[in-house]
Simulated scan of single mutants.
Amino acid sequence: MVAQQFTVDLDKPLVFQVGHLGEDYQEWIHQPIVCKESPRFFGNDVVEFLTKNKWWYIPAIWLPVVGWFLSRSIFMGHTTLDVALLVALGIFTWTLMEYSLHRFLFHIETKSYWGNTLHYLLHGCHHKHPMDGLRLVFPPAATAVLLYPLWNLIKLLATPSTAPALFAGGLLGYVMYDVTHYYVHHGQPTSEYPKNLKKYHLNHHFRVQHKGYGITSSFWDKVFGTLPPSKVEGKSR
């Protein structure tokens, strides 16, 4: 007797359904539903509310934190130029983290019930509903939890006076990433660079989903050979 394939009911809360897809989960999330309405994740209204975030929460919450850490390095004797260079290094380091997390964690292939469920919450939901504006940026509470071990790691690797500026740079890089990610989905760019960035990222969603992992730029895709093929090459395969 052949087992019947599981079908997700889009009219019911999704999170605890997707795990049942098993090996079909990867194919399912890569068939996007282009709709600005937010799907229902959980039956509980409080938990459902906590899964939604407006994009402006990110700069409103984290830019003051960036400023505070910058002030710590300045207070400990670093010049403005010193701090600017440390911030630039922090931002550059973040871009590599951005690429690595997107490629190796967000696009990990799962097939078990809990693997699919956790992946859907982490990134699968974004590929299934790429225009859901309320689940595009990372929840600030979850970010805070992740920042704590990152701050402790930076303190181990840097001096007491340089660590705050490096951390501020990495956090600023994250803020730039999240607001850029929102913009390439929902903004209407008029100048060439943001237009190309939008086209590059939407290509990742709708045409070549296993390449083009950069969000704020394609730099690391070029370095690691994950640039998507041109349209001509894509059609010829």
Rank of each mutant, 00 (worst) to 15 (best):
V2C: 01
D9S: 01
L10S: 11
L10Q: 12
D11A: 13
D11L: 11
P13Q: 02
V15H: 06
H20R: 14
L21V: 00
E23D: 09
I29K: 05
I29W: 02
Q31L: 05
P32G: 07
I33L: 12
V34K: 11
C35K: 14
C35N: 13
E37R: 10
P39V: 12
F41C: 08
G43N: 14
N44P: 07
N44L: 09
N44K: 08
D45W: 15
E48A: 14
E48Q: 15
L50Q: 13
K52C: 14
N53P: 15
W55K: 14
P59Q: 13
P64S: 15
P64K: 12
L70K: 09
S73D: 09
S73L: 06
F75I: 07
M76F: 12
M76R: 12
M76T: 07
G77I: 08
H78N: 08
T79F: 04
T79S: 12
T80L: 06
L81F: 14
D82H: 11
V83D: 04
L86Y: 07
V87G: 02
A88V: 03
G90L: 04
G90N: 06
I91D: 02
M97E: 09
E98Q: 06
Y99S: 00
Y99R: 01
Y99W: 06
S100I: 01
S100G: 04
H102W: 06
H102P: 00
H102S: 03
R103G: 02
R103K: 05
F104N: 08
F106P: 02
F106C: 07
H107A: 05
W114T: 09
G115T: 10
T117A: 09
L118H: 12
L118I: 15
L121C: 10
L122P: 05
C125R: 14
H126K: 06
M131S: 08
M131G: 00
M131T: 11
L136V: 14
L136I: 15
V137L: 09
P139F: 13
P140K: 11
A142Q: 15
T143G: 15
L146H: 09
L153N: 02
I154V: 11
I154Q: 02
L156K: 13
L157H: 01
A158M: 05
S161R: 00
A163E: 04
A163F: 03
A163H: 03
A163N: 00
A165Y: 03
A165F: 02
A165P: 04
L166S: 05
L166D: 02
F167T: 04
F167H: 01
G169S: 04
L171V: 07
L172T: 08
L172S: 07
V175N: 12
D178F: 14
D178L: 13
V179Q: 12
H181D: 07
V184E: 10
H185L: 00
P189R: 06
T190R: 07
P194D: 09
K195D: 07
N196W: 09
L197I: 08
K199V: 11
K199G: 05
H201Y: 11
N203M: 08
H204I: 12
V208F: 04
V208W: 05
H210E: 11
H210N: 12
G214H: 09
G214M: 10
T216F: 10
F219V: 08
W220G: 04
D221L: 01
K222S: 01
V223Y: 00
L227G: 01
P228D: 01
P229I: 00
S230L: 03
G234S: 11
R237G: 01
